[in-house]
Simulated scan of single mutants.
Amino acid sequence: MSPIGLIDYGMGNLHSVQRAFERLGAEVVPIRAGAAMEGCAGLLLPGVGAFDPAMKRLDQSGLATAIHQWCGAGKPLLGICLGLQLLFEGSDEGSREGLGLLKGRVLALPRKSGHPIPHMGWEPLIPAQPSPLVPSGCEESWMYFVHSYAAVPAEPSCTTANVAFAGQAVTAAVWQGAIGACQFHPEKSAEAGEALLMRWLDWLNR
């Protein structure tokens, strides 16, 4: 298979993501400019940190435009953590526009007594619309979360998994067209996370 492109804009946990995919037999190459995407089987958009600085770096590097062109051509992309949030139109965390590849916004998690923020730790996924990431009949998957914000898609059908927080379901993973993303960290989620990443790789090879 062609290599997987790992978008490097200075705000992702690149090493752990790269290691996770290499353990599954995938070749991973860093992407710091749009031209480097050529020949990739799919792109990974990781992210750790705040929404506005991440979008500023993507815009200034030209990577935001390149990602738009890539996804506009129907090519596969997988977002991870902040990478999921950047796919939407905007966020409560900042004032910059997001990539807008998915309709909807990212909202702050509800602040309720007994539910500390950030939401951190292991939680089971609640399956929603089936997708290559969370297919029908998928066994219970516990994933590792660290987040203070969650996406609210304008199209509920793009939510492929939720997670329970403060008595309500919040978005844990999305899928639309060839774009998938997860709010949790599959690269830190042991066997369940590895299985999810393997499903994405298998889908690329379909």
Results as ranks from 00 to 15, higher is better:
S2Y: 08
S2V: 11
P3Q: 05
I4S: 01
I4G: 00
G5I: 03
I7D: 02
I7C: 02
D8I: 05
G10S: 07
M11A: 11
G12M: 08
V17I: 15
Q18M: 12
Q18G: 13
Q18P: 10
A20C: 11
L24W: 07
L24D: 06
G25V: 07
E27T: 14
V28N: 04
V28L: 10
V29E: 02
I31V: 14
I31N: 01
I31G: 04
G34W: 04
G34F: 08
A35C: 13
A35Y: 11
A35G: 13
M37Q: 08
M37Y: 05
E38R: 13
G39Y: 02
A41V: 03
L43H: 00
L44H: 02
L44G: 01
L45W: 00
L45G: 02
V48N: 08
V48A: 09
G49R: 06
D52A: 03
D52H: 03
K56F: 09
R57N: 11
R57C: 11
L58P: 04
L58A: 00
D59G: 07
S61I: 05
L63Y: 01
I67V: 09
I67Y: 02
H68I: 04
C71L: 05
C71Q: 05
G72S: 09
A73K: 09
G74I: 04
P76N: 00
P76L: 00
P76A: 00
L78W: 02
L78F: 04
I80Y: 02
G83F: 02
G83N: 00
L86T: 04
L86Q: 03
L86W: 01
S91V: 10
D92S: 10
E93W: 07
R96M: 11
E97Y: 11
E97T: 13
L99M: 09
K103R: 14
K103L: 06
G104S: 04
L109I: 11
R111H: 13
K112R: 15
H115P: 09
I117E: 07
I117S: 09
I117M: 07
H119M: 12
M120K: 04
L125W: 06
P127D: 10
P130A: 03
P132N: 08
P132K: 05
L133S: 04
V134D: 06
S136C: 13
S136I: 12
G137T: 10
S141Q: 15
W142R: 15
W142S: 14
V146M: 09
H147K: 06
P153Y: 06
E155L: 12
P156I: 12
T159M: 13
T160H: 03
A161L: 12
N162T: 13
N162Q: 15
A164C: 14
A164H: 14
F165R: 11
A166H: 07
G167H: 11
A169W: 11
V174S: 00
W175V: 08
Q176I: 06
G177M: 06
A181H: 03
A181T: 02
C182D: 02
Q183I: 05
F184Q: 00
P186A: 02
A190P: 10
E191K: 14
E194V: 07
A195N: 09
R199K: 11
W200S: 06
W203N: 06
N205C: 14
